[in-house]
Lab assay of single mutants.
Amino acid sequence: MSIQHFRVALIPFFAAFCLPVFAHPETLVKVKDAEDQLGARVGYIELDLNSGKILESFRPEERFPMMSTFKVLLCGAVLSRVDAGQEQLGRRIHYSQNDLVKYSPVTEKHLTDGMTVRELCSAAITMSDNTAANLLLTTIGGPKELTAFLHNMGDHVTRLDRWEPELNEAIPNDERDTTMPAAMATTLRKLLTGELLTLASRQQLIDWMEADKVAGPLLRSALPAGWFIADKSGASERGSRGIIAALGPDGKPSRIVVIYTTGSQATMDERNRQIAEIGASLIKHW
């Protein structure tokens, strides 16, 4: 058993032996400061991975655009179909130039040979490839079927209504393609630790998130040596930015963190910096 498999397999085991986890309101002070700095709403939640207890939250039940963070949920739905014998990670999917949409750094290189379902999930999560996400959405029946999958998990909040890139429109008060921090954190925890997916599929999902290559300026920039993080970021119109993550010290995840912001006029660099500073406060007061 690899170190990674050891880590995921023991998450339920550690729940019975973990020390009490204490919240630190200092992080919420930073979240509120980020709102002031960005001139935008910020949603935040910090969840204990083992118990599911909410440690801190700010606007946990307000809607925010999901942006590309939905791609983790999408690959969770794909893995659920794999577990049920309805899909194979090794199945190759062929597509054409007409299928390519904006920001497809991986799929645009494989027009001649296509990509496997496994490769598409990797591209969608680690590189946020939009065509990969659309191709995967097609395999499960489209955005409405992803919403149905989430409903069956008990998440009646999170919804996907459109495809890439239209889902990134982020119109104020538009509930399409949105979630709430509390709903996203709970759903992510179920995917990573619950019985919905097999152990192998849970491991695969967290491996893809751990290999994320496009979230460096966010929480990863504040991470001390030896800490673990598996994450997925997102960005969209109207100053929207977000990240969902499982992270913790000693090389294993122990908390879920979800951060969303929307409605800012700030630059992408400034949005990144504010999220990184929230992460730094979280780690300092861990």
Score class of each variant (00 low, 15 high):
Pro253Lys: 03
Ala183Ser: 11
Val8Ile: 15
Ala200Cys: 10
Ser80Leu: 12
Ile244Met: 04
Ala222Tyr: 08
Ala211Leu: 07
Gly90Ala: 14
Val214Ser: 08
Leu55Ile: 13
Leu135Met: 09
Asn173His: 12
Met67Gly: 15
Pro65Asn: 05
Met115Arg: 02
Ser254Ala: 13
Asp177Ala: 01
Asn168Phe: 03
Leu73Thr: 06
Arg176His: 07
Tyr44Ile: 03
Leu79Ser: 01
Ser240Ala: 15
Pro12His: 13
Arg92Cys: 07
Ala84Arg: 14
Pro143Leu: 01
Ala9Glu: 06
Leu19Ile: 15
Leu137Thr: 05
Arg91Asp: 04
Lys213Leu: 11
Gly216Arg: 06
Val106Phe: 07
Asn152Ile: 11
Met268Pro: 08
Asn173Thr: 11
Lys53Arg: 14
Arg7Gln: 13
Asp250Pro: 05
Leu89Arg: 01
Glu56Ala: 10
Asp269Glu: 14
Gly43Leu: 00
Leu55Val: 08
Pro181Thr: 02
Leu160Gln: 03
Cys18Leu: 10
Leu218Glu: 02
Thr267Glu: 10
Gly216Val: 05
Asp207His: 13
Glu119Ala: 08
Arg41Tyr: 08
Thr198Glu: 11
Ala211Ser: 13
Arg81Gly: 05
Arg176Gly: 05
Ser57Trp: 11
Tyr103Arg: 04
Lys252Phe: 11
Gly251Asn: 14
Ser96Cys: 12
Val21Gly: 10
Asn98Ile: 14
Arg220Ser: 02
Leu111Pro: 07
Asp83Ser: 02
Gln97Leu: 13
Ser51Asn: 10
Glu237Ser: 12
Thr198Tyr: 06
Asp161Val: 03
His94Ala: 11
Ala222Asn: 12
Pro165Trp: 02
Trp163Asp: 05
Thr186Gly: 13
Ile256Leu: 07
Ile206Asn: 07
Arg81Cys: 04
Gly90Cys: 11
Arg220Asp: 01
Arg238Gly: 14
Arg41Cys: 05
Leu167Thr: 08
Asn173Leu: 12
Gly90Val: 10
Glu237Gln: 09
Thr186Asp: 13
Arg41Ala: 08
Leu38Pro: 05
Arg189Thr: 08
Ala215Leu: 01
Trp208Arg: 00
Gly239Asp: 04
Leu19Tyr: 15
His94Leu: 14
Asp177Val: 01
Val21Asp: 01
Asn50His: 14
Pro25Val: 11
Leu282Val: 11
Phe13Tyr: 12
Ile206Thr: 12
Phe228Ile: 04
Leu89Asn: 03
Leu137Met: 10
Phe17Leu: 10
Asn173Gln: 13
Ala266Pro: 03
Ser240Phe: 04
His94Arg: 12
Gly226Cys: 04
Met127Ala: 08
Leu218Ala: 03
Arg176Ser: 08
Asn173Tyr: 12
Asp250Ile: 05
Ala124Thr: 10
Glu166Asp: 13
Phe228Ala: 04
Lys144Met: 11
Ile259Asp: 00
Pro181Phe: 00
Pro20Arg: 14
Pro217His: 09
Pro224Val: 01
Asp174His: 03
Leu219Ser: 02
Leu135Thr: 04
Val82His: 07
His285Ser: 06
Leu111Arg: 07
Phe22Ser: 15
Phe22Ile: 08
Ala276Gly: 07
Thr107Gly: 02
Leu218Phe: 02
Ala148Arg: 15
Pro224Met: 01
Ala215Arg: 03
Ile11Met: 14
Asp177Glu: 01
Asp212Lys: 02
Leu167Ser: 05
Pro224Ala: 02
Glu210Ser: 10
Ser57Cys: 09
Ala245Gly: 05
Thr179His: 00
Leu188Ser: 03
Asp83Ala: 02
Glu175Leu: 12
Arg238His: 14
Val82Phe: 06
Gln265Ser: 14
Phe13Leu: 12
Glu169Ala: 11
Leu137Val: 05
Leu219Trp: 02
Gln204Leu: 13
Ile283Met: 09
Leu135Ile: 13
Gly43Val: 00
Arg41Phe: 07
Leu150Ser: 04
Met153Asp: 05
Ile283Arg: 02
Leu136Arg: 00
Ala246Gly: 02
Gly216Leu: 05
Arg189Gln: 14
Lys284Ser: 12
Ala9Ser: 13
Leu73Lys: 00
Gly90Thr: 12
Arg7Gly: 14
Glu56Arg: 05
Val82Thr: 07
Ile11Ser: 07
Phe6Asp: 06
Ala280Gly: 11
Thr158Arg: 00
Gly251Leu: 08
Lys30Asn: 06
Gln265Pro: 14
Arg202Gln: 11
Ser221Arg: 11
Asn134Lys: 01
Ala211Gly: 11
Pro20Asp: 14
Asp250Ser: 11
Leu89Glu: 04
Asn272Ser: 05
Asp231Cys: 03
Thr187Asn: 09
Glu175Cys: 10
Leu218Arg: 01
Met66Ala: 03
Pro217Gly: 09
Ala124Ser: 09
Ser281Leu: 09
Asn152Asp: 15
Leu137Ser: 02
Leu188Phe: 12
Leu49Ala: 06
Arg202Gly: 06
Thr112Met: 15
Arg202Ala: 13
Asp99Arg: 08
Leu167Ile: 09
Gly263Lys: 06
Arg81Trp: 03
Pro12Asn: 10
Gly251Ser: 09
Asn152Ser: 14
Met66Lys: 00
Trp286Gly: 00
Leu223Cys: 09
Glu164Ala: 00
Thr107Ala: 10
Gln88Lys: 14
Val106Leu: 12
Gly52Arg: 02
Ile11Lys: 04
Asp250His: 10
Asp36Asn: 14
Ile93Gln: 03
Gln265Ala: 14
Trp286Met: 02
Pro224Arg: 02
Ala276Val: 08
His151Leu: 10
Met153Val: 10
Leu19Cys: 15
Arg238Pro: 12
Ser221Tyr: 07
Leu10Arg: 02
Asn173Asp: 14
Ser122Trp: 13
Ser264Asn: 11
Leu188Met: 09
Leu89Tyr: 06
Asp36Val: 15
Ile229Val: 05
